[in-house]
Design a protein around this nucleic acid. Sequence first.
DNA 1: CTGAAAGCGCTTACAG
DNA 2: CTGAAAGCGCTTACAG
Lengths: 340, 340
Amino acid sequence: MRQSRATIKDVAREAGVNISTASRALAGSYGVHPDTRERVIRAAERLSYQPNSSARGLVTGRSRTIGLLISDIRNPFFAEVARGVEDAAAGAGVQVFLCNSDMDAGKQMGHFQALRARQVDGIIMNTVSNLDAQQRQELTDGGVPVVLLNAPPDLHAGFSVVVCDNFQGGFLAGQHLLALGHRELGHITGPRGHGNFLLRAQGFLKACEAVSVRPVVLRGEHSFAGGIELTRKMLHQHPGITALFAANDVMAFGAIHALSDMGRPAPAGLSVIGFDDVDMASVITPGLTTIRQPMRDIGAAAVQILLRESDAPEQRMFGVRLIERQSCAAFVTLAAGAGG
Amino acid sequence: MRQSRATIKDVAREAGVNISTASRALAGSYGVHPDTRERVIRAAERLSYQPNSSARGLVTGRSRTIGLLISDIRNPFFAEVARGVEDAAAGAGVQVFLCNSDMDAGKQMGHFQALRARQVDGIIMNTVSNLDAQQRQELTDGGVPVVLLNAPPDLHAGFSVVVCDNFQGGFLAGQHLLALGHRELGHITGPRGHGNFLLRAQGFLKACEAVSVRPVVLRGEHSFAGGIELTRKMLHQHPGITALFAANDVMAFGAIHALSDMGRPAPAGLSVIGFDDVDMASVITPGLTTIRQPMRDIGAAAVQILLRESDAPEQRMFGVRLIERQSCAAFVTLAAGAGG
DNA sequence: CTGAAAGCGCTTACAG
DNA sequence: CTGAAAGCGCTTACAG
């Protein structure tokens, strides 16, 4: 007993006007007598009329939907961004499609094509770095605006980008650890090719260079499991390390977990700093010192770009700041000055 | 330079057939000569044809989309469910709209209407308990199948439901705490009206009754912040409590955080058990002992129900099990036997 | 200010 | 097996 919905035809009949008049009245466009307009709106309410989005989309070519194509919504960073995206979209009357790619190029392209078939007005993707040149070409040729949450290899490839100041974030992380007196530093990060991670590492190295410190960098999965694995490896290969910069909070959680397992709990056993400032960062023990980026603002900004009139790609960058909690401690042994 | 997409007309011309033939060939429906069919498919590939979903939706009345309307995707429980939903949906070629309601009745109804206008084939909602009778009526009258992730007040209201065995989960939690020797128990949970929380509490009380223990129950927000607040309140009002059952993991995280703040870290200061077994449960220190429910399976089952042919409401329940980690310890003082 | 008409891109009876 | 036609529910020039 699927109730059949009222169409604009019903509304027009109820209001005693032609459907084109009804359409204009409902659209609020001028050129309709206030009284008629009122009558139509009343009729629509009485019938609890809801315009059929498919029909509208078919004629306008715009669907008032956007796609959010990320690696995994379970990553709290993406959950925050998604929340920002959804709130901004809902405020503008657009709905968002959620797609998880697991960073698999095939899944990513599949979702892209599906979203394109749905005539989405734009797509927010976390990255494009795992795609080959031809696939990237497909994206830019698809006719749907794309905004990336990760600076692509070629900034001029036609994508919009919304990021935080990753370089500065890495720099702040390095500075903080150095200011605490640490000189043997480690950095665990995601695979090559991710613009955000690359910049974080570069900022970090830059801070270290200033005092002639050369940190050890290890790459792997940028997940909780990856954080555990890389931390183990790091301490195994470089037992002298006293402080660790994890490229994101989830990896930092892994690090903290691994350290606790190894009987070297942070911060006494090792100082750990993360990146993102995800909710859980203040929840775990010890509280995670980290670089905060405005995740919800980033999501909202991506939506704004998609909803603009212009199609011209735009790059936007947000500032970051250090949030001090308990996972980093000062370096306090006799060897303190040795590295400098 | 938005590239215009190939339509079925282009494909038909390219293949030298009528568009109706092209449509049938692409749909794979019989009544098309294999050769023609082949020709059409080739043509479609050459033009990288993507059927326009709006057009298709307009004529079929089905959109191959579903809505996922939850309180907040940042709650890791929902993120897990969402992942299960999205994977199952993607496998069936359907896309999912993500909507956050913050449990606000207005937002919830607004999203519902918007999804309905989009002709979604179904909606997965976490709960309906904050809606009044009229609003609920709107949902059932909307003509779109709804599956709930939370048993509604009236099981026969026409909704499908997918849940875990909440009562049994609560029972297991109680049993575990009692088996460890605890007799002064507390339970912190969400607001009244949530079927899941209610059942968890009932199961918990049932286990306690068996040994004539009467736990203290405190209600509040079922969030991290709520967990902190309720834990503080609990220890303030009932300092004798030695073990705590939090109605979900996020609240349990709050409890653990609060305890650490108060200088009574779990499990020595207080035993804490949660519900869900979210990823982070194994990450935090101490590892959270909790009741595991199959969140991804729940999401997938909800999609299955929506994608069936039949419209008949269906109730499905998944089993739960206890996951022991480090947040619960045996009760070990001279007063141990006092409560029994 | 309002109406009649065309058309968006499909699918689906209906003929042949 | 294939084609011509109608129609899904809207919007939008185009007349009046």
